[in-house]
Simulated assay, not measured.
Amino acid sequence: MLSHLCLGTNQFARAYGFYTALLGELGLVEKFCDLQKPWAGWMTPGVARPLFVLGGPHDGQPAAPGNGQMTALLAGSRAQVDRCHRLALAHGVLCEGPPGLRPHYHANYYGAYFRDLDGNKLCVCCHEEA
């Protein structure tokens, strides 16, 4: 369904460090990084798409998070959701909802919500039973 997802940042080096740690915890690997552009992309090992791309906006204007937009990243376990949330908070991001069940979505939905260093809303979630 998705080819790639791009998130903008105003401080690439700082955001790159955060996303390298977060996406690494989720098992993604870096496909490319160009500090001059600046942008970087991550992928599931051995799978070309979808790509998660981080970079400065192409139009040279400041990056700004959208209202009502959220990027949800899939975790393989509830423990992985917990680890990602702790990792995110250790990088200084804003918690938007601690890890926990959200049965109003479905019986096994376990997620954590936070805003990255540029204010982009993220979720890390698992749909599997404990």
Rank of each mutant, 00 (worst) to 15 (best):
Y19W: 14
L74T: 10
R49D: 13
E30I: 08
H4L: 12
T71M: 06
R102T: 06
Q61C: 12
L51K: 07
C123D: 14
Q80H: 02
T20E: 14
P65V: 03
P103R: 03
Y109C: 04
A107G: 07
D59A: 08
E25A: 14
Y113I: 04
R102C: 02
L23Q: 03
Q11I: 08
G55I: 04
A88F: 00
L101M: 09
C6F: 09
R86H: 02
N120T: 06
N120C: 05
A21Q: 10
L87K: 02
A79E: 14
V93A: 02
A21R: 13
P57K: 12
N108Q: 10
F52Y: 07
R83C: 06
T44P: 10
Y113F: 12
V81T: 04
H4G: 09
G111F: 00
E128V: 12
L117T: 03
L54W: 04
G17I: 00
P45W: 02
Y105D: 06
E25H: 10
Y110C: 04
N10G: 13
A63P: 04
T9A: 07
Y110E: 01
E30C: 13
V29R: 07
P65H: 01
V53Y: 05
P103I: 01
P57C: 11
G68R: 03
L5H: 00
G66W: 08
L5I: 13
G76V: 00
L54D: 05
H91Y: 09
S3P: 00
N10Y: 05
Q69C: 13
L26Y: 05
R78V: 01
H127S: 13
P45H: 06
G56Q: 14
G111T: 09
M43Y: 09
G46R: 01
G24R: 02
Q80F: 03
A48C: 11
V29N: 07
G41C: 05
W39Q: 14
H4Q: 13
Y19A: 00
A21C: 09
H127G: 08
G119N: 06
H127T: 11
F52P: 03
M1T: 10
G8W: 02
A90C: 01
G119A: 05
L73I: 09
A40E: 04
H4A: 12
K121Y: 07
R86N: 02
C33K: 15
E128K: 12
E129F: 03
D116S: 01
V124A: 05
K121Q: 13
K121M: 09
C6L: 08
P57V: 09
L22M: 15
P57T: 10
V53Q: 11
L22K: 03
